[in-house]
Simulated assay, not measured.
Amino acid sequence: MRPTVPRVLAVVLALLLGGYVFVVGPHLAGEPDRRRAAAIDAALPPTHPVHRDGQDSRDGQDSRDGRDGRATFPAPGDAFVGIMTDAGVHDLTEAARFTRATGHLPQVYEFSLDWASDTFDAGPVDDVARRGMMPLLAWEPWDHRAEPDEERLRGVQPRYRLSRIIDGAFDPYIRAWAKGVASLGHPVGIRFAHEMNGYWYPWCEEANGNRPGEYVRAWRHVHRLFEQAGADNAVWVWSPNVHYENATPFEELYPGDAYVDWVGLSGYYGTVGLESYQSFDRIFTASERRLRRLTAKPLVITEVGATDAAGRKAEWITDMFRSLPRHPGIIGVIWYEAVRVIDWRVTTSAASVRAFAAGVSAPRYRTPWSPGAVPRARP
């Protein structure tokens, strides 16, 4: 076939098109992911390689033995400041944005996974740890994808009744997680079935056909399976909502000190129906006192946030950091850096960012976390 100008042009065009489809196109398609990964690495650089043998690579010490003089986390008198995001371990973009804005690396990174769709995967959990953040799993025995819009119906999922957990229906799943956690070279917080004193989850005793006493039995059953798997690096965080009228009393739900390492509380300024301004002390003090009648375990504010609907988020954040030193039993605070009905994120306004950056800059909030640190056992 004799080459002609049209034929040559057609060949050149085909080569260019092929190059775009097989080389340039895929590169451009992956460019947003590469940029996001680069931004995350810049804000949250990996600094702590972790091993599968339970050792922190920095000191070679067994991370499950606190008798070797290693640092306690957080240090006595200090408190950590962590965050929780919607994307969790699947995407650290929000954590990177928060860190860039406030200048604070969260020492604890909380994330939710549910029993219907999430199997154990060490990779993302290790990724959090190697970036200097203790992983804290809000472990939810339900199918969050089936969550209805009506709050009163959120707790209706018969498959996940407490009695089924107690009777062993989920034992293979729990054992798989226990074995996986035991294989990690660092502590992992397990915030199992949180806010159990309410009515809005299938594991609440007020919901889903559950009966009094079943929550404690379910907690102890799950805890025993982790013990049997050798997962003594699990840090058990029992975390009710702040007490409110008609809530199930803490006293009826606490599994006992032998089954709990840290206790927690969830509380917000500005939830639907409670939009009037409430200070940090007003939200948490009464519940903290109620907890102290049960246990002296260290307390973590496992979820907290503030609305800016009235333009007072920055004021509330300043008040929170002013109040925290008056609560020496609180060893950590985890800000809900996410949108759920309300945008709770610190990064929604420059004023909120300034207030948070100023508060968290105090020396008592600077204790670093590392894979070899020993979780604090006393307030």
Rank of each mutant, 00 (worst) to 15 (best):
T318H: 13
L17F: 15
V188P: 03
H327S: 10
R376V: 14
F80H: 04
A296K: 10
P32D: 09
T302V: 06
H51C: 05
P3M: 05
Q228K: 08
L265G: 02
R312I: 13
L294E: 09
A14F: 11
V222D: 01
E275N: 09
V353L: 07
N246K: 14
G168E: 09
Y269V: 02
R145E: 15
P255V: 08
P240R: 02
W142I: 01
R159K: 11
H90M: 01
Y20A: 07
R152M: 12
Q278N: 13
T99G: 06
R35Y: 06
L137S: 03
A146L: 14
T302W: 02
G103F: 03
I283W: 02
G198A: 07
I174L: 07
L92G: 00
E147H: 13
G103M: 07
V216D: 02
A42I: 12
R282D: 10
T318C: 07
P249C: 05
R217E: 13
Y215Q: 08
T302R: 01
P74N: 09
D257F: 09
N208E: 07
T285E: 14
P46K: 04
G264L: 04
P212R: 08
E195A: 04
G19A: 10
D86H: 10
D261V: 00
H194T: 14
P298N: 08
A207N: 08
F73H: 01
P74T: 03
E206T: 14
Y201M: 11
W236G: 01
A351W: 03
D143T: 06
P74D: 03
A338G: 09
A38E: 14
D59W: 07
R58C: 04
P202E: 06
Y109Q: 10
E337C: 09
R217Q: 13
H327T: 14
D53Y: 12
G332S: 11
R354P: 00
W262L: 06
D68L: 11
A116E: 11
P26G: 07
P368T: 09
G180S: 06
F192Y: 15
R290M: 11
G359N: 04
A42Q: 12
M196Y: 05
D78Q: 13
W238C: 01
Q61K: 13
Y336I: 00
F356S: 02
I283F: 03
D143H: 11
A37S: 03
A234M: 07
G180Q: 07
A42S: 05
R159V: 10
V8Y: 09
A96V: 06
F284I: 07
V5D: 09
R64D: 04
R322A: 15
L153S: 10
G25F: 12
A357Y: 04
A218S: 10
A355Y: 01
W200V: 01
G25Y: 12
P74Q: 04
L274W: 15
D78H: 15
G77C: 08
Q157Y: 10
V8G: 06
R145C: 03
P368N: 06
A129G: 05
Y277K: 11
E251R: 01
Y259V: 00
G180T: 02
A350G: 14
A306S: 13
K297G: 05
V216Y: 02
G267Q: 03
R220Q: 15
R364H: 05
A10S: 12
G19N: 12
S349E: 06
A362M: 03
S323R: 14
D232C: 02
N197D: 15
A79M: 08
G213P: 04
A29N: 06
A207Y: 05
S276N: 15
I330K: 01
R282V: 07
G332Y: 04
R52Y: 08
V12T: 13
